[in-house]
Design a protein around this nucleic acid. Structure first.
Length: 726
DNA sequence: AAATGTGGAATTTTT
DNA sequence: TTCCACATTT
């Protein structure tokens, strides 16, 4: 019964799956069967009787990953995986806090704030304490709060360097008071609360430590300091931690991910007699050889890797292609051309991805695709549960569940408009602040005079009526009732372009329905859901923001950032905008380890491709309303020339080939009489490689402006500067 | 309370 | 350029 499970695993995968009970670090390269190893490991533990479902805890970062793990696991094992804890860090922490809310010092119905709610709360705190939001930008405080919490620091533990940061820490403390008063928690708070709860409460900690003898973590390189501490705390003296990750795919340092956790792991989880076992999965089952060669060559330029080299038993496949476009428009046109050819060769557009470093780059490509009538889908942007109409509906639901939620109160007290203006709300907020109570309480206790007071009373009556009416209803019916009774539906019906919002509200009712169906069917939090469906649904809405777009009917070309592509794979991949300043991004240069993270990002991009890979760059690009001339990315040079087939003159040296693919405008062409032209790559004996971005003067006065890769932008007199075509 | 104007910023992002 | 938040007007 074990052997079919282990069939067709390669020796390293087999070793990882069947490791004896001890902590292990699995260095799993891109496309090396990481998820398979993780799920098979669990199935093997169950099959051999080494673990019961109750003793397994599996942690992921995204809901998608945790769903995939559950799905794949249920195929691999006959055992009912209900009872196993599989989820995201935040989901699991939420579960623990719901179960032990009293010990954690939280109200029973505490609500989870998403990032938007958090920012709104910060702004409210500012207003209540007359804090200047010019001097202290709310977003900056938000970053400080989240950064501190993710490092495990409360306000009294944050070090202040100067007057400014001292004030900021004060604001952090005020924010915490507000959270506590309103019974709301932000994302990092879920982690930190749980961590503090477990460190404080010995019997609780021991309970979980005894229970979870097997802890498995996916994407370990993405853990932050707090998550690592959390794992360390939860792993009792006898737990085996199975950490799977890839240091070369660490691309989230900017949001606190700490690759060093991988190094610390060996030190922290080795016991006196059993060292942490390290296994490398280097055989890649995704890409053809040439693609892997390029990826390996690129990532070799990084220092301080744990060290890994992907290989495949597959064919070399097609060469990696590169293309230098004169402009971003031409780059897009090139993509459209190639995609047309691929589709004719029966490659599904859904199997083709256009990757870029930043979202702003999608526009030009979208435009070209639109004009070519090619279906495409852009990932990223507004998520379902983040949409205004959805948040409004959820706010009504939150008030029904817990009326002291000021954030929810303010969001809908005058939406749809019912004549409660800013001035009456300010009075109300002043009173609440003075009495340290919620807006709801203040409004109930002291009727506000005038028309607004009447509306306010009507609003409270409305919410109370909702509560009564939905008392005995199921979740979906509750949502449906609230959507109607709140007047949201009516409001959008009378709006000219409200149809999409109405559809979304309908979709929210559907979401509630499938949420209940899911909970009844199986997995995880079922008990809590039965206990209090509404609170569970609200937590679900906060923790799982949903898809950005409904899936489209016909297959569409995939457009997304490189970050969003992590974990995915495609037949063909275009890595676009490979230009200095864009990819690697200029902002990364000033960050510690910034360039190396950009390189890892490029590595992730390349390793998404199974069969065909295009690397493109544009010599000029419209950015922030300004035409910019960029030098080709150093990453292009870091892939050895022999591995790349250039479909254009390398780095777009169009001067050497006047009949080339360039399409310069007349104004630019008119300027050239010197043998040099704008957009041309040049080499300077001292400044190195660059690109001509402007020119002026004639004859002996002629000067050109060059953007050097390493030396910035300089004006050079052609008569004296020793410029060479590069 | 909607409509219009203005200024400023514009990697990457999950929970 | 384009998007957003915020302020001012109508």
């Amino acid at each position: 019964m074990v052997s079919p499970l282990l069939e067709s695993l390669n020796p390293e995968q087999l070793a990882a799956v069947t490791l004896p009970h001890a902590s292990a670090l699995i260095l799993a390269g891109a496309g090396s069967g990481k998820t398979r190893v993780l799920t098979t490991r669990i199935a093997w533990l169950l099959a051999t009787g080494q673990a019961s479902p109750l003793s397994v805890l599996a942690v992921t970062f995204t809901n998608k990953a945790s769903r995939e793990m559950s799905t794949r696991l249920s195929v691999l094992t006959p055992v009912n995986i209900r009872g196993m804890w599989i989820g995201t860090f935040h989901g699991l922490c939420n579960r623990m806090l719901r179960a032990h809310y009293r010990e954690a010092g939280l109200p029973k119905l505490f609500q989870i704030m998403d990032t938007q709610d958090q920012l709104a709360l910060i702004k409210r705190v500012y207003k209540a304490h007359n804090i200047d939001d010019e001097r202290f930008p709310p977003r900056q405080l938000q970053a400080l709060i989240n950064g501190s919490k993710e490092a495990g620091l409360r306000p009294n533990q944050v070090e202040a360097f100067d007057e400014f940061s001292r004030r900021q820490v004060e604001h952090y403390a005020l924010y915490e008071q507000a959270c506590q008063r309103e019974g709301v928690v932000d994302f990092p708070e879920l982690l930190l609360r749980t961590y503090e709860l477990l460190s404080r409460d010995d019997s609780l900690r021991q309970h979980y430590q005894r229970r979870f003898s097997h802890i498995l973590i996916d994407e370990f390189q993405d853990t932050n300091v707090l998550q690592y501490k959390w794992l360390k705390l939860l792993a009792g003296p006898h737990a085996a931690i199975f950490a799977v990750g890839d240091d070369d795919q660490s691309i989230y340092a900017f949001r606190g991910a700490n690759v060093a956790n991988m190094q610390h792991f060996e030190r922290d989880f080795s016991t006196a007699d059993v060292p942490v076992k390290l296994i490398k999965l280097e055989q890649n089952y995704r890409s053809h050889g040439h693609i892997l060669d390029a990826a390996n060559a690129l990532i070799k330029h990084n220092q301080g890797r744990l060290g890994k080299n992907l290989w495949t038993s597959d064919a070399h496949g097609e060469p990696v292609r590169a293309y230098a476009a004169p402009s971003d428009l031409d780059e897009a046109a090139f993509i459209v051309d190639v995609v047309k050819g691929l589709v004719e060769d029966n490659v599904s557009p859904a199997e083709i991805a256009v990757l870029y470093r930043s979202n702003a780059q999608s526009r030009v490509v979208e435009h070209a695709l639109f004009n070519a009538a090619m279906p495409y889908r852009v990932y990223g942007g507004m998520r379902f549960f983040e949409r205004a109409e959805i948040k409004h509906a959820l706010a009504y639901l939150r008030l029904v569940a817990a009326p002291d939620d000021d954030g929810a109160f303010l969001r809908v007290v005058n939406f749809p408009p019912r004549g409660i203006g800013a001035r009456s709300l300010e009075t109300l907020q002043g009173l609440a602040q003075a009495q340290g109570s919620s807006l709801w309480q203040v409004a109930s206790a002291r009727p506000v005079s005038g028309k607004a007071g009447v509306s306010l009373a009507a609003f409270q009556k409305l919410v109370e009526a909702m509560k009564t009416a939905t008392q005995d209803l199921g979740l979906a019916e509750t949502v449906e009732h609230v959507v109607h009774a709140s007047g949201l539906l009516g409001h959008y019906q009378s709006e000219k372009d409200g149809q999409e919002r109405i559809d979304n509200l309908q979709e929210l009712i559907n979401a509630a329905q499938s949420f209940m169906r899911e909970a009844e069917r199986e997995v995880g939090a079922a008990d809590e859901v039965v206990d209090d469906p509404l609170t569970s649904f609200l937590s679900h809405a906060a923790l799982e923001a949903g898809e950005t777009q409904a899936a489209e009917g016909r297959p569409a070309l995939q457009l997304m950032t490189v970050h969003a592509a992590k974990g995915l794979e495609f037949h063909t991949v275009f890595v676009t905008g490979l230009e200095e300043g864009l990819f690697p991004h200029e902002n990364s240069m000033s960050e510690l380890d910034g360039l190396e993270e950009e390189r890892r990002l490029a590595y992730v991009a390349i390793t998404r491709a199974r069969r065909r890979l295009y690397l493109t760059h544009a010599q000029s690009r419209m950015l922030h309303g300004q035409l910019r001339y960029n030098v080709a990315s150093r990453f292009l040079d870091e892939v050895p020339a022999g591995m790349v087939q250039w479909l254009s003159p390398k780095h777009g040296d169009f001067a050497a080939e006047p009949e080339g693919l360039g399409r310069y405008n007349a104004a630019e062409n008119a300027r050239e009489d010197s043998g040099w032209r704008i957009g041309q790559s040049v080499k300077h004996s001292r400044f190195g490689l660059g690109i001509i971005i402007d020119a002026e003067g004639r004859g002996t006065d002629a000067r050109v402006q060059v953007n050097f890769r390493d030396g910035g932008v300089k004006w050079l007199a052609l008569e004296y500067a020793k410029l060479q075509p590069a």
